[in-house]
Simulated assay, not measured.
Amino acid sequence: MQTQQTDSTEIRRLLTEMDGLFDGYMAWLGGQYDAASGGFYYAASSRGLANAEPDIESTAQALNILERFGLLGNLPSGMRQGLVRFFQQKQDAASGYFYDANPLMRNDEVMVARAISYSCNALRKLGGQPLYALPYEAQQAPAYMSSPESYLAWLQAIPLMNSWRGCDRLSTSSVYVEQVEPAERRADFARIAFDFFARSQDIHSGLWGQGSHYVRISGTFKLHIFYDRFHVPLPKEDRIYQSILYALKNEEAADMCYIRNPIHLLSYMKLDIPAHELREIIELTLANMKRLLRADGGFSRELAHSPTAPNVAQVKQGEYYPEMPQAVHIGGGMVEGDMNAGTQALLIRSVCYQLAGIEAPSLEASQHVWYANTKP
């Protein structure tokens, strides 16, 4: 009993220390806001790139950050309208897809699918909606969605030698499966996917594909998004949990995703984690986050620097995945905070409080000058 009380006290101390990592964060976020477009840049160095402009993912992530700071409900009307306009103007009228200005973005199937989710979710939160029909309704979905049989063939053809990238490709297909009508046909597509995933899962680790533990945990995290869309629990959760513990204790978390993905999986699985193990999980998570906190008040995605092109950052130096898309550069690769890492850091904080069964205290933010001075 005494040991459990000690663990509880230490967990609270660790969470309070984690809160302190965000003391300068809202000021950093304000530096990425672009009132003219209504969007947010990825990093401070982004403004110096040729043809620089805010991108879909960074702007949607900034909106998530504002939500986690408790500011979404009272956004100044001018800022809210600017954000709605930003996402609506990104939608292509003919296809229903949402595109950034960089033409290379259109060649990355993961970015394209993710932009649909990011944009639609952002518009929903802001009280707006897409201006045009989404791709499936507009008959512009990928060819593999033409039938359940072609979908299965596509799933089977996705390489998983890098679990993170491969499972990301598998998972993003859920964006299109979710749009299928009628419901009976949608269920056919979903059933094919879940049957395929079950056959592909490693029976010992509970993970999918190949790579280091962190790479495979990240792939498993990507697949959990598919499961979550259809409210289906992950299979072999006990084995996934043991794999997470191994990675935390034995591998270097060189990417913010390697910190966020295990924690997010734990929250989805809703396991009964022993207090001493939860204490260790939060302690290791906090130590890893500290290594990515930068002098500008933000967090870097990677230990070495903020990656210039997050769309190809899943495959690290020395790793390989076939037919990778071209890099879509949205940052300057400096040792600086970036939006991708920041939104994950805040989610990690929220999930750690959730795992501890403690209500997360509000992070003070509303009085920051940049936010207070946006037009009402």
Rank of each mutant, 00 (worst) to 15 (best):
Q2C: 05
S8Q: 15
S8E: 15
E10G: 05
I11N: 03
R13I: 07
T16D: 07
E17D: 08
L29D: 00
A36I: 02
F40M: 04
Y42N: 07
A44N: 04
S45R: 08
T59Y: 08
Q61C: 06
R68H: 07
R68T: 01
L75G: 06
G82A: 08
L83G: 08
R85M: 10
S95E: 06
E109H: 09
V110C: 14
M111N: 14
L123H: 07
R124Q: 10
P135S: 05
A143K: 07
Y144E: 10
S150P: 06
A153C: 01
W154A: 06
R169G: 02
S171L: 10
V177N: 09
A183L: 03
R185T: 13
R191F: 06
I192M: 12
I192N: 04
A198M: 02
I203L: 08
L207C: 11
L207W: 05
T220H: 11
L234T: 00
D255Y: 13
N261T: 02
H264S: 10
L266H: 00
L286K: 10
A304E: 12
A309S: 15
P310R: 09
K316N: 07
Q317G: 15
V335Q: 14
G337L: 06
N340C: 11
R349A: 09
R349M: 11
V351A: 07
C352Q: 08
Q354L: 12
Q367D: 15
W370Y: 02
